[in-house]
């Protein structure tokens, strides 16, 4: 990747590897700061926008619940129930859509020899993860203040579930990024085709045991549902899902990531040229 072997016959020593790593760290740091600036720096409230969407859904769900009383949270505290659904899902959707546009958006930066498409992808993944984790934490703190604190049963399992969603989104995003040069319109269909249907079938507003078994058999093919079930099982003492297929969720997430990386690698030059 880096030009550490630019001179034929030069041995790759630990110090060369170290300096390449230092460069890579510098580049990723610079890319993250640049991306943050591009996204949130333009407007005074820029950073605040990140919180608007999940907060909107929390509010909507609570209002709905007050009015019709019908959507149940299976004994789980309402605010926490919806937060554990919406924030991880937003991580999935954000990773997918921002990676799909990442290569095209940063083509000009590839003129710098130390910047590779891999750095761009890594920087965006890190940025999405850290911002959504921050949103998650702040929403939890907010809920604790408003609705009373809640002791998370198994934080590591929650994090694992979030990670699976993020990885799936990143994998899909890389696949789209690779397809953009041959099918430019694909950017416009990622949301209607994947984002929206998945939004309603991934268990953001329900858990698998709340829905009729005839529908459940089909909806369980959605791997994101398993991931959100994992998150809620880890979060709530009151809730333990009987429908989680850990192997399915794990293989799906890592499989998407692997295919995404392979597609990106094979289409990289094409993508840079025509972006």
């Amino acid at each position: 990747m880096r030009s550490i072997n630019s001179r034929a016959g030069t041995a790759i020593t630990p110090s060369i590897i170290l300096s390449a790593l230092v460069t890579q760290g510098r580049v990723i740091n610079a890319l993250i700061l640049r991306e943050t600036k591009t996204r949130y720096g333009r407007h005074k409230l820029g950073f605040f926008w990140m919180f608007i969407e999940p907060m909107f859904f929390v509010g909507l769900f609570l209002a709905f619940k007050l009015l019709v009383r019908s959507p149940t949270s299976g004994g789980m505290p309402d605010a926490y129930f919806i937060i554990t659904g919406i924030t991880p899902f937003l991580l999935f959707r954000q990773s997918m859509s921002s990676l799909a546009n990442a290569i095209a958006g940063s083509r000009s930066l590839l003129a710098f020899p130390q910047v590779t498409t891999f750095d761009v992808i890594l920087a965006i993944i890190l940025l999405e993860f850290s911002s959504l984790l921050m949103v998650f934490t702040i929403l939890l703190i907010g809920s604790a203040a408003f609705f009373g604190p809640y002791a998370i049963e198994n934080p590591l399992l929650v994090l694992y579930g979030i990670l699976l969603l993020g990885i799936s989104g990143a994998g899909l995003g890389m696949m789209f990024a690779a397809l953009v040069p041959i099918m430019p319109s694909i950017k416009n269909i990622t949301n209607p085709l994947f984002g929206r249907p998945l939004f309603f079938t991934s268990g953001v507003f329900f858990t698998a045991d709340m829905i009729p078994s005839s529908v459940r058999d089909y909806i369980l093919y959605n791997p994101l549902l398993h991931m959100i079930e994992i998150i809620r099982s880890g979060f709530f003492v009151e809730f333990e899902s009987q429908y989680i297929d850990h192997r399915y969720a794990f293989l799906f997430a890592t499989g998407l990531l692997l295919v995404g990386m392979l597609m990106h690698q094979s289409m990289r030059n094409h993508a840079i040229k025509s972006a």
Binding site: R34, S106, S108
Partner: peptide, 25 residues
């Protein structure tokens, strides 16, 4: 890097922000 009309810079960022990016990398 190859200096040209646009090479390497992000149009929606200011000169100052682009400077910082270059300095960092």
């Amino acid at each position: 890097w190859p200096l040209g009309y646009t090479g390497g810079f992000q149009g929606n960022l200011t000169a100052r922000e682009n400077c910082r990016f270059v300095a960092r990398i």
